[in-house]
Design a protein around this nucleic acid. Structure first.
Length: 254
RNA sequence: GAGCCACUACAUUCUG
């Protein structure tokens, strides 16, 4: 069973839905009992692609086999509805989770923040974010999700404020910690992406520099945004330059 | 019994 789970996980990572579900069916045909991990893996696979219908189907099979959803299951369902732009249903899942005494993890909060962000409701995204930071003050994906919400709405001043707070947070160790929090390139990438969308190349570059100044290394996504920003603004020399920088730093071409 | 870590779940670009 463990080996089948690994196989299904491998398929799900490559988005081979047919193969993954076939492996799952074969499992049952061979008389093996799928575990919670089996179901969770399948649900997550569909969730990432906003295939809520299929995710729900797997959930029902999971329940039919007597297994209860856990925090992984619920978080994937949050992701499924969130990515599908169905924030209210994500909220319903969240309530359900709490009612069933499953403690939402930082992942869960992030998915719900993201759900509201995608639905264009930055207000509610903010509310969930605040709730998250009460329990998990330093969960970077949660910050990135809210930054993304602001960027999608084009309220870059709010994104700036939040990013500034984050950079400030990272200059000083948290209470009880010896080292300051290490920021991820992703939080900068999100903001760069927001500026790219409104074709503000200066701010994209400024944010990029700020990331380096904060001691954070640009990753592949950073360069993709950067190159895309140059291109979108018609600066092809800049794009080529950024591309060369990327290769020189160790990036690879997708 | 407790604490770290790892596992199936979270955010940013592109690809599919």
């Amino acid at each position: 069973v463990g080996m089948m789970n690994v196989l299904i996980l491998a398929y799900s990572g490559k988005k081979r839905y047919e193969d993954a579900t076939r492996a799952y069916r074969k499992m049952r045909a061979l008389g093996m009992e799928p575990t919670r991990t089996t179901y969770n893996t399948l649900i997550a696979m569909f969730a990432r692609d906003s295939r809520t219908r299929e995710a729900e189907g797997v959930l029902r099979q999971m329940q039919a086999s007597g297994l209860y959803p856990d925090v992984y299951t619920y978080t994937s369902l949050l992701t499924a509805y969130g990515r599908a732009g169905r924030a209210e249903e994500a909220q319903a899942v969240f309530r359900d989770m709490v009612m069933c005494k499953i403690m939402p993890s930082p992942h869960s909060y992030t998915s719900l923040v993201d759900a509201y962000g995608r639905a264009g409701d930055a207000e509610k995204a903010e509310r969930v974010f605040k709730e998250m930071t009460r329990k998990y003050p330093f969960h970077l994906p949660g910050y990135a999700a809210l930054l993304g919400a602001y960027c999608r709405e084009g309220v870059m001043d709010k994104a700036e404020d939040l990013l500034r707070r984050l950079v400030r947070l990272a200059t000083v160790p948290a209470p009880g910690e010896s080292a300051p929090m290490k920021l991820s390139p992703a939080v900068f990438n999100v903001v760069m992406g927001g500026y790219r969308k409104i074709l503000d190349l200066d701010r994209v570059l400024f944010t990029f520099e700020r990331m380096l100044a904060a001691g954070v290394d640009a990753d592949q996504a950073s360069f993709h945004v950067l190159i895309g920003a140059y291109a979108a603004c018609g600066d092809y020399d800049g794009a080529v330059f950024a591309f060369r920088e990327m290769v020189e730093v160790a990036g690879i071409v997708p």
